[in-house]
Design a binder for these strands. Structure first.
Lengths: 138, 138
DNA sequence: TGGTAAATGCAAGTGAGTTGCAAATGTGGT
DNA sequence: ACCACATTTGCAACTCACTTGCATTTACCA
């Protein structure tokens, strides 16, 4: 079974602070990965004053605990999404407008085993993003 | 057939400058994707004085022409490798020492078609990197 | 060889992300 | 409920990859 968010924090010796609750709430409200600035803007809109640096520190920490997922489209900044029981998945981003869509698939399980055999690395993660043009920008 | 590097530059209205030749030479010497700073260091070592900003501008241009390939491991900087007739491939990086290895495979051709059908995007690229621990760091 | 667009170097700027430190705040034990 | 204490937060300053503006230089073509 999966640990609850609170249990995961406790298991990592972390406190359940106001900032942390608010950050997770903003992420939960967004289905797609958002930037640190967008998380911060969400906090401001929810009248929760949390410094930007606190957002950075918490996202890094939540990522280490496996509670959030970092996604990068080589935009010069990272994006984050909650894990929270969602299935492992990937994304596609439009090169025109930047729109992101979830792709509920991953073809890499078998391949990972093959890579482990061939390289002698122990593989513990991968980044897979697609790029293209959405119907509106095409 | 594939255009030569010189032909590709000409086709794009680009000049074959000393800086450009030297940058491509440094990339050709390196089998794996290297950072902009590493390209620049390679130029200095080869006694070719090219400003760092020129390296940035040329790598961006060479990427647009499809002559070099940008690879990102979410390290806060990009890496570049020459395309030059090499087969499409991906990489794995060690989380311990940062070592990178070529993976001469790509499982995404069929999947790309499927994504195009499902999302109505026209897919024109993808980023796929693996992460893990190499035998020395494990 | 000379005219011209493209390319370069330098300096200054942008913006994401980090670090140090003093003040504030959860938490677990009593 | 309170206290002790480690964790967390905010602020300010900083780092570093990358970009931009502009005057000078260079490759190319007639």
């Amino acid at each position: 079974m999966e640990l609850s968010i609170i249990d995961s924090l406790k298991a990592g010796g972390k406190k359940l602070t106001k900032a942390r609750k608010a950050i997770l709430a903003v992420l939960e409200k967004n289905a797609l990965p958002i930037t640190v600035a967008e998380v911060h803007a969400g906090l401001v809109k929810a009248r929760t004053n949390v410094d930007l640096v606190t957002v950075y520190r918490n996202l890094a920490m939540l990522q280490e605990l496996g509670l959030v997922n970092a996604v990068g489209f080589h935009e010069g900044q990272m994006r984050y999404e909650v894990v929270h029981g969602r299935a492992h998945h990937h994304h596609i981003q439009c090169r025109g407008c930047g729109k992101i869509i979830d792709l509920m698939l991953c073809p890499l399980k078998k391949l990972t085993k093959l890579i482990e055999e061939q390289t002698r690395f122990s593989v513990d993660g991968h980044a897979l993003e697609f790029f293209g043009w959405c119907p509106q920008c095409r």
